[in-house]
Write a protein that binds this DNA or RNA. Structure first.
Lengths: 181, 181
DNA sequence: ATCAAGTGAGACAGTCATGTCTCAAGAGAT
DNA sequence: ATCTCTTGAGACATGACTGTCTCACTTGAT
């Protein structure tokens, strides 16, 4: 039941990441089901996108909680966040990059709140002296998601090995974000 | 004449960056012209995208040449590249991120060649000891464009000041890419 | 004032994706 | 073996976008 719906959502994200304009027809085929069944599971394209957004938000919130981004050393918190969120890089990259496709205010608002939570982590790190203050915290947050999305695409397209993805993200990002003397 | 076409292309990119599925109707309205004139300038959506891709390739190639990425210190070459390409961040970000929208083989092939030229810069920097070798050169290239795209969006959405964009890109990226002891 | 060129508004048919429906076939339980 | 539930295939009307065309209007030059 839920497993089924979720696998359909994930295959839809996989396709839509490459072809944002893919028709319901193609989405159904990518999931290995018929167009009729797809409409039974998600009544309409809007509903499908809504559930994709909801799933992405759930995963993202879980990752933030799991990583305990509000506690402890900010640098270590970023590493924990990368650990927790990289398994869902495709999904998060989709909602982050393609967020303009979501007309849904509830989704975009909730996303903005999660985004703000990440920005707060960087602001906290700047105040504690861990992160460079020359770069705005909002930019650090944006850059983190940009690179996360990039990792997601690179892995999906086979340009980056999955086992290298965590290092690729954290080393590059932290190298640029951590304050040095 | 050419100026007119170009301004239409740029406003189209501005709109399509936010709404990749925007109709010709909306593209025309965003450019301040009628749908009829838009079709006179660019006979069909495909032709419009083709010219956007061509323009982006021209700008990108000019930037690579201007920056002389094949010569001199790799770190300085990256700085020069950022200088040269940031004015066209929106355009390059569009073709880079939304490249899946281009069915045009000529465009994607030419883009891959330019992308490879950037990757060669990073490979050269790794061989000279300037850049970290733990990160694949292809990932450095990808990350550079991801961050460039992020800068483009952030500036467009007003989240980042234009005068800060160069520093935001080069400091974060080079901080993570440059080798340290 | 006249003329030429370009533009905008609207109409038009064609195409495609969508959402809904029906019906036949298959899977699984009893 | 039978029954029930779910699925897939296809048909259907609807709506949206596209590409093309016509016509009236404006602009600028002569």
């Amino acid at each position: 039941m839920a497993t089924d719906r979720e696998s359909v959502l994930l295959s839809a994200v996989g396709l839509l990441s490459r072809q944002p304009t893919a028709a319901m027809d193609e989405i159904a085929r990518a999931a290995g089901i018929s167009r009729a069944t797809l409409h039974r599971l998600f009544p309409g394209r809007e509903a499908l996108f809504h559930e994709i957004g909801t799933l992405a938000l759930e995963r993202m919130e879980s990752a933030l909680n799991e990583a305990a981004v509000d506690e402890g050393d900010p640098v270590e918190a970023v590493r924990r966040l990368a650990d927790a969120v990289i398994p869902h890089a495709q999904l998060v990259a989709f909602i982050s990059g393609e967020s303009r496709l979501f007309d849904d205010d509830a989704i975009t608002d909730a996303w903005d709140r999660l985004d703000a939570r990440v920005a707060a982590l960087f602001l906290r790190g700047q105040q504690s002296g861990a992160f460079r203050i020359e770069l705005p915290a909002s930019w650090l947050s944006e850059a983190f998601f940009d690179l996360l999305a990039g990792v997601g695409w690179a892995v999906q397209d086979g340009r980056l090995a999955h086992r290298d993805s965590n290092r690729a993200l954290t080393e590059l990002f932290l190298g640029g974000a951590v304050r040095r003397d």
